[in-house]
Design a binder for these strands. Structure first.
Lengths: 340, 340
DNA sequence: ATTTTTTTTCTAATCATTTAAAAACCCAGA
DNA sequence: TCTGGGTTTTTAAATGATTAGAAAAAAAAT
């Protein structure tokens, strides 16, 4: 079967090329008669307009880029990302957009980085880790390619972003432990120098303070969102801080590593020690014991980011929106009353 | 800054448009003098050729599609996928290709499915779950879009594919348990009607037989690759099959669910019961106890699939290649000697 | 110095669409 | 019958590259 194009379809339907185009794009000023003739040919030969040529003519590709910063290999393997991609993808498809996936690592050359963002091919970009944006923003800014961030970034107050309400989540988690009677509560946090971390730490501190508990700096650790980090930290703490009876972990992965350390030391969870996580990863309900955690709407974050971006591309909404989605405390078995 | 195109560059460099094109594409027959003049302008104005226009002219987009079948939400959240995407992506980038991500679900209309594969925009497609291909193959076949599968599919012997050596992995896992002295070994397997499952079951059976052990049908369960399935199965088995002392799980997620069930019943791992998984997910080393598992080269599978696809796109290799990558037994704490 | 060959450059067609603007058509009202 | 208005259709000019093939320039051979 030879290649079909709009001219061939036009000829077969006995109309000119522009009529076919107008039919296919639902433009007005087409007689019913012509429309029927064109559609008949389109159906018969299963013609689909060439999206590349269309992009060239309209100067828009209906394609958005998703840029994931590859901070650590390990953290890419925790199940969070696919759900985020899924949220982005499904919203995009609903609105007629395709998704191009890229991973950015800091070892990448600037040229390659620019190549990833080749602006002729992308109508917009979603950046999934704050680290990406510094390099990215300049590349895209003067080309007028809209950006949306997942995770607010105070360095870019003029870019729309979606995030979970980190303060709310961390406060709720800490309060949950306080309500259970714990007095000595540690906090293990992820990436330094990120607004997210700052908010979570502040919430943790204020929750303690609001309930008349001491805030001790040696009960706070800031590392990375990895099992390794949770494991290491609790390994040290269980020896150094014998009075601590609970810990708030800023991710489920940290909590997972932490619980392994506790297990190895023979500390029972939740009997002797309570653990609360953050994220609500699908795996959290199958940890041993099942993890009490702050469930964030991962899929929803992706969905909302795509919404904001497409609105911006279509100029539906010009103003900057920085949105916080509410997380939800899910109580499972890893948290219990403070030991007597 | 007004839009730059090849004509403007040509004018600025005092050459014709075709000279600019040849410089940019490293074609011969350009004088050093002209090349220098063109490059100077390109650098000065940071000109990048419009990839869409290039695609239209060359009839290739340098873009491949990755189609993930969305069988179950839960299984998308297990950390396997991002590593696979990463492998695909990094190989693609090395060879100048972009990656378009799509999720396919069976509830999707045929029209949308076709939309995802819009052949004008894709030079090739990688299908990540076997389920996808039945619908996909026809759509792409007569348009001459190459396909590569991750996971062999006997229904499509003429399509190249990459997989882990399922037989080898399952045999090794089972033998590991046999070597530890276990006589009553269960097997929990994933998706039915997939070659992968068939091979893993066969390997499990043959390993038992080869070592003089009985194969009992009531020791075999075929469900899905989820924690839920592992949990349910071991919940039942620990009551029904008191003699069983070990289980081979066809995924780490199954093992994770299974270990939770054992934990809840007070069965100690590995003291009373040994568990071996399959996949080597990043989380497996932090399970309680850390999981003995068959580590498959997830990243490598993605990488190799991309290699095969791009070779096919470039006509470097015409023949069908169905490749098995070797897995590796990683011994951790979840497996130990059979109880006396 | 002239012809031949080689190298380089330019012209123009092509890829497949969209979309202004011009042209054609139809019909009612004068 | 002619005119004016609206509707529909066609024409042709973009969009921004690649790439044969013609033309021109430079180099080599006679």
């Amino acid at each position: 079967m030879e290649r079909l194009n709009i001219d061939k379809v036009a000829k077969l339907a006995h109309v000119s090329r522009s009529v076919v185009s107008r039919v296919l794009n639902n433009h007005p000023n087409v007689s019913d008669e012509a429309r029927v003739r064109v559609m008949k040919v389109v159906k018969k030969y299963n013609y689909r307009p060439n999206a590349v040529a269309r992009s060239l003519a309209t100067q828009s590709t209906y394609q958005i880029g998703v840029l994931t910063s590859r901070i650590e290999d390990e953290s890419l393997g925790n199940g969070y990302w696919t759900l985020l991609y899924l949220g982005i993808f499904e919203e995009c498809i609903r609105r007629g957009y395709y998704v191009r996936l890229s991973f950015y690592s800091s070892s990448m050359s600037d040229e390659l980085h620019e190549h990833l963002l080749n602006p002729h091919q992308l109508d917009g970009v979603i950046c999934l880790n704050e680290e990406v944006t510094d390099l990215t923003v300049e590349t895209l800014a003067d080309k007028d390619i809209p950006i949306v961030l997942v995770g607010h970034n105070p360095k870019h107050p003029d870019i729309s972003s979606v995030d979970v309400d980190n303060y709310d989540g961390a406060y709720t988690a800490t309060k949950h432990l306080i309500d259970l009677g714990h007095k000595q509560i540690g906090g293990i946090f992820g990436d330094q120098n990120v607004e997210e971390t700052e908010h979570r730490i502040r919430a943790y501190r204020e929750a303690l303070k609001d309930h008349g508990l001491d805030v001790r700096d040696d009960y706070i650790s800031v590392g990375s969102y990895t099992q390794q980090d949770g494991y290491n930290t609790l390994n040290v703490w269980t020896e150094d801080h014998k009075q601590m009876t609970a810990v708030f972990c800023a991710s489920d992965t940290i909590a997972m590593g932490g619980m392994l350390a506790l297990h190895e030391k023979g500390v029972s969870v939740p009997g002797q020690f309570s653990v609360v996580g953050f994220d609500g990863l699908p795996i959290s309900r199958y940890m041993i014991p099942p993890l009490t955690t702050i469930e964030q709407p991962t899929y929803g974050k992706g969905e909302r980011a795509a919404q904001l971006l497409i609105d911006k591309i279509k100029n539906i909404d010009e103003k900057v929106i920085q949105e916080n989605l509410k997380p939800k405390l899910v109580i499972r078995k890893s948290s219990g009353p403070a030991p007597a």
